[in-house]
Simulated assay, not measured.
Amino acid sequence: MNKNIQRLAEVAGQDERRIIGLMSGTSMDGLDVALCRIKGGGNKTQVALTHFDTIPYTDEVKAEIRKVFAKKEIDFQQLCLLNPWIGQLHGQMVLDCLKRWNLTAADVDLIASHGQTVFHAPKLQHQLAKFSNATLQVGDGDHVAVTTGIITLSDFRQKHIAKGGEGAPLAVYGDYFIFSKEGENRLMLNLGGIANFTYLPANLSASEVFTTDTGPGNTLIDVFARRFFDQPYDVDGAIAARGKVNLELLHILKKDPFFSAPVPKTTGPELFSIDYIRLAQQRSRTTSLTAEDLMATLTRFSAETIAEAVLKVLKPGEIYHVYMSGGGMHNPVLTGSIRELLPNCHFSTSDELGISGDAKEAVLFAVLANEAMVGGTTSFGDRQGVPTVSMGKISFPD
């Protein structure tokens, strides 16, 4: 037997697996690195987050990614070069974390690498009859594995699409396995670049669980924070707090067909871009809006579309607990508006469930890798957006 196959079988047979989850989202802040100790699989999964760090992307890295990010027309050579470059970069970031944590590659069984999304094209968005849903992440798994010397699972989203999903969001699987609680309806709300939530019913029925994007989370706020204030994001919502929401612009922003489409659904910065805002400003005759008022309006836009998506799934008379995660949970203007719009929900963060809200997405990919090793028996039914599927392509270090 090939020694790599033998090692993989040994990992699957262990009582506990040490898995590093890697996540870099559409906000492109950097790489989240979460080392987890995971026991069991399926609804018996037990996760302990032992180490976590976020390694910021340098301005150079961000600039290279933005050359192809969410653009229909690109330099194809740039895309080709990014795939191994990001893989090697992420691998080195893992090694740097292990050194800071006084650990070695031998202390880790697997890496679960999401990669860096550069384009997301669900059929709802591209509208091309002969093509299916599509998505593309760079950061090749072979390069992560060779750089670190650790078996790596990557490219999770392709199997989801192959089985009829849209490739995102994938949080539903990990959320269900580690956060479901009998007797409590939960919504795991991720306030990333694109916002999404997972519905976890109190009856623990896997056939009722689903996850959906709601639209922009931080992506537009971040774009205009960089554009007008030379800041990577609106720290503590301070810029939005100085502005006033423009109702005419807000009304036009919410007109896109995405918001009326049934759940589950997915989207990305390919739709919610600078051009989307420019067109909305032209239609609403708000091109002279101050930068502060624009930031206030964009923040309210995210809050209202998130809240309206949530309201569609709430059942009268039921109590719901919302657990927030992602960078947007640190923006009090955004979260305050969401709380205001959902007065009958109980709010907290995933930290209260034992997983840091900043680390949650990286942890979820570690759980997906664990499920590929020892799970795969939980049936989510045969529903759009939640196929019953095992995800992750395996790369060996030698």
Rank of each mutant, 00 (worst) to 15 (best):
Y173W: 07
N133P: 07
L49N: 10
A48C: 11
L294R: 00
P257A: 05
T104R: 01
T287F: 02
E318Q: 14
I306L: 09
E318F: 00
K62I: 01
Q77P: 01
F177M: 13
A70H: 08
P257R: 08
V209M: 03
K315R: 15
R7L: 14
P56N: 11
M324E: 12
T299I: 10
L253C: 12
A241K: 15
I86C: 06
E308T: 04
S379H: 08
T148M: 06
V172Y: 11
E73H: 15
E184T: 15
K360N: 04
A168P: 07
Y233A: 07
G268H: 07
V61L: 13
A238F: 07
R186T: 01
G385C: 12
Q46T: 10
G268L: 00
K62R: 09
N344A: 13
K130M: 09
P201I: 02
L82G: 09
S27D: 03
A366L: 03
L89G: 04
D293I: 15
S390I: 15
P316R: 13
I55C: 13
I86T: 12
D75S: 13
D142H: 15
I5V: 13
S273E: 06
D256V: 03
T297L: 01
A202H: 09
F76M: 14
T299D: 06
C345I: 03
S288H: 12
R339H: 00
D256T: 14
S337D: 10
P169D: 04
D109Y: 09
P257E: 05
S325I: 06
E292M: 01
I178L: 08
R100V: 01
G354C: 08
K72E: 03
A291W: 00
A362L: 06
F210Y: 11
S395F: 02
L341S: 13
Q46H: 13
K360W: 01
T349Q: 03
P84M: 01
P169H: 08
K315T: 10
T152R: 09
G243C: 10
R66A: 05
D175W: 11
D96L: 02
L103P: 01
A112E: 04
Q78D: 08
A12D: 02
L342Y: 02
A362R: 10
K312W: 00
L279V: 15
G42R: 13
T297V: 09
A195R: 01
K99W: 00
Q384D: 03
A9H: 05
Y173H: 00
Q6I: 11
L35D: 04
I19N: 09
N203L: 02
D59P: 11
Y276T: 11
L35Y: 00
D358G: 14
L81S: 11
A309Y: 04
G40V: 02
Y320N: 10
G41P: 04
I150N: 03
